[in-house]
Nucleic acid binder design. Structure first.
Lengths: 182, 182
DNA sequence: TACAAAAAACCGTCTGGACGGTGTAGTATT
DNA sequence: AATACTACACCGTCCAGACGGTTTTTTGTA
């Protein structure tokens, strides 16, 4: 159980993630992943019997990463209403690792596979639930989450625009909803 | 110039659009488009020398369709501040033709082609400009446009959710911005 | 502790199919 | 003679997955 050794499986997952991040979903081929992971194609297929399963692993991994980012930010915030939703918004804006291209790639992959879709749908419900539990109305939660997802699209279409102001707009939206009309 | 006859070029464009709408970008192959358009592969390539050009045509066409929808809705609205932005929001919610899958497909296609990206970026700027000219602050314009784009993603992740309430939230956002703080 | 057997982890090649694109020869219309 | 196609064979490339290995690790047993 020496944790010095990283399993090949993890290397493959990491390599896959990196390829999607840097080159997009189209470049995610078994050979490319195997090569970047320093593993043979056969070795890759030992862990992930087909491409479908590999992608599932990659998606799951990056979802977990995002959740972890949100959780980390959550702990740094004061316990005010909308605390979780704030962390969620901030996680999106602070994420300088996930490229817009990767986001789209993941979304594409998810959109056409029922099992991944189901996974995302339950994740989405979780987000809504946690947002509401941390003290905002369902309407605000939904609006802010939708807008936050939209931020990824804006990054594609408007590459050079700073988004600090947008981030403030979203955080303000939460504040107003909390202070004002309940 | 008998307008009874639809040009083959238009048939190809329409078929391509339909395939993306119904089956997604992955199924958009030259042969599939030719077949659905009732045109030979050679005939398709006569009009669109390569797949790149074909996709460009399809994207452009569907952008024009969306713009037309916005313009149509615009004429039905009273001349209040935020008029254009309202039409923009309504166009997204009223669009029952563009599937989420098609939206993602188009976005994918755009994201990896500089020329299409440039086209979208200028379109995006146009939207901002028109929104602001119709009487909302730049901050509101941006927030609402971003959120409206996010609506497409929500349709993927949360297929069965009605969006009327979300639509109202967005329209309210415009109203509040107009009535309240300038 | 030794050692073999079995299982797990991993390698590299090959094949079959899909797809983009080319080329050629021919047809209908204007 | 030019334009706008049809029909169809064909090539090169790419890729998922199958297959048949080999090496490493674990386990059973004497």
């Amino acid at each position: 159980m020496a944790n010095k050794k990283v399993s090949k499986r993890d290397l493959v997952l990491l390599a896959g993630n990196n390829i999607v991040l840097e080159q997009g979903l189209e470049q995610l081929t078994l050979e490319a992943v195997a090569k970047q992971a320093g593993v043979s194609k056969g070795g890759l297929l030992y862990h992930f019997p087909d491409k479908e399963t590999l992608m599932q692993g990659i998606i799951q991994r990056s979802l977990e990463d995002f959740e972890r980012t949100v959780d980390d930010l959550y702990t740094t915030l004061p316990d005010v209403p909308g605390r979780w939703l704030r962390a969620f918004v901030m996680a999106t804006f602070d994420d300088d690792r996930t490229t817009p291209r990767a986001f789209i790639g993941m979304t594409t992959a998810i959109a056409s596979r029922p099992d991944l879709l189901a996974l995302l749908q339950s994740t989405y419900s979780d987000w809504m639930e946690r947002a509401i539990q941390s003290g905002v109305t369902p309407e605000t939660a939904r609006l802010v989450i939708v807008a936050t997802n939209g931020v990824w699209l804006e990054r594609i279409f408007w590459e050079d625009a700073g988004q600090d102001h947008l981030k403030d707009s979203l955080l303000n939206l939460i504040s107003e909803s909390v202070d004002g009309e309940g």
